[in-house]
Simulated scan of single mutants.
Amino acid sequence: MKAIILAAGYGTRLRRDIENDPTGRFSHLSGIPKPLLPVGPTALISHWVRALGATQYVDTVLVVTNSHYLEAFEKWAAQFPNVKVLSDGTTSNEERLGAIACLQLVIKHFKIEDHVIVIGGDTLFKEDFSLATVITEFSDLQAKCNESNLVLSYECKDDETSKYGILEVDADLRVRCMKEKPLPSQTNSRRACPCFYLLSESTIPLLDKFLEEKKAAPIEERDAPGNFLSWLILRKPVYIHQVSGRFDVGNLAAYIECDNFFKENFLQLKSYLV
């Protein structure tokens, strides 16, 4: 199994927050891509690489970034023999390809014909998350139907539905509908869906079809991974695995919360993510 970490964003919200922070406490983080931000004792993305290696299910971790941050990621990756870094060739947020196009780029460049774990490079999960558990559940689904896919879900608050993609599922926890940033009154579900997907080998070719259909659409329709997921559930079985929550390092406040949690708790999280 291959893991692909999406790290080609430019972190415009976080950069703006750092520049506007009157305390200046976080000015040293300016210019650092979100996945390389220090979270507790190590870079955010390093938590994933170490956990993925420890599971023994994943043989290679592929990181897609942009040309602007390529050197920083290559320097970071030198410590991990199982990590390969690829640039999407862009140098600014305005040029960005979008997350789905970056995912397709990695798959074609490395000629991947395997199941894939897709991870958002600015995301970590609470301490109850276990890669081994999730991968085992995916394997069980595959044994029943080799076209099955698995995504994560966590309960959000009523006033947070308009921030996320919200999944509606049946009694078997199969996703039947995904609503993008609905009002609380527009869905009874509170199942938010972060960017962590286990995609079956049979699903991978559908990336080409999705992007072909969306080639004339605005970049926003090709950027958010949830847009592909919403499209996919009409064509392939997609199931959920429930977790308690996540850290989404989208802005400075979210980064501070995440960093503080790991500074206070990391020594107790001996097998974090594994």
Rank of each mutant, 00 (worst) to 15 (best):
N265Q: 06
N251V: 13
L198D: 01
I204C: 02
D248P: 14
I32T: 05
A7K: 00
C258G: 00
E137T: 08
P38W: 02
Y164E: 02
F262Y: 10
I32F: 11
W231M: 05
S230L: 14
F80D: 09
E147T: 15
G98R: 05
C177N: 12
D128S: 15
G53T: 07
W231P: 09
C156Y: 07
K34Y: 14
N265V: 13
S202P: 11
L183A: 12
K270L: 13
Y10N: 12
K179A: 04
L124R: 01
K2S: 14
K111S: 15
G9H: 02
H109L: 12
L269Q: 11
K263W: 07
L269C: 12
G24F: 13
L267K: 08
P194C: 08
T133M: 14
D21I: 07
Y154D: 01
N227I: 03
F247N: 08
K179D: 07
L6H: 06
D248S: 06
S139Q: 09
E95I: 12
P184K: 03
H109Q: 15
Y164W: 01
F262V: 01
L141H: 03
P194R: 11
T91R: 12
A51W: 02
L173M: 10
Q104M: 13
A54S: 08
D158A: 05
F247Q: 02
I240N: 12
F196G: 06
L150G: 00
N260I: 11
G121S: 04
L52C: 00
Q268H: 10
E95F: 05
S67V: 08
K111E: 10
P237Q: 06
E160G: 04
T91W: 09
H28I: 13
F262L: 05
H115P: 00
I204M: 02
E113Q: 12
E94M: 07
R16Y: 05
W231G: 15
G165I: 00
E201M: 14
M178K: 00
K34T: 04
I135Q: 00
L199Q: 01
R176V: 03
K163M: 03
H28S: 07
F26I: 07
I32K: 13
R191I: 05
V175H: 00
V49Y: 00
D158T: 12
T136W: 09
T55A: 03
T42G: 10
L97P: 06
L29F: 00
N265H: 12
P38L: 09
T60R: 11
A171H: 04
V85F: 06
G9R: 01
S87R: 09
I100M: 04
S148N: 03
L97V: 05
E94V: 14
L206G: 01
Q104P: 10
E212Q: 09
Y197R: 08
L14H: 07
L267I: 11
R96H: 14
F138M: 14
S202Y: 13
V64H: 08
A77W: 02
D172S: 09
A216G: 14
R191M: 15
L29R: 03
N251L: 09
F228I: 13
I5R: 10
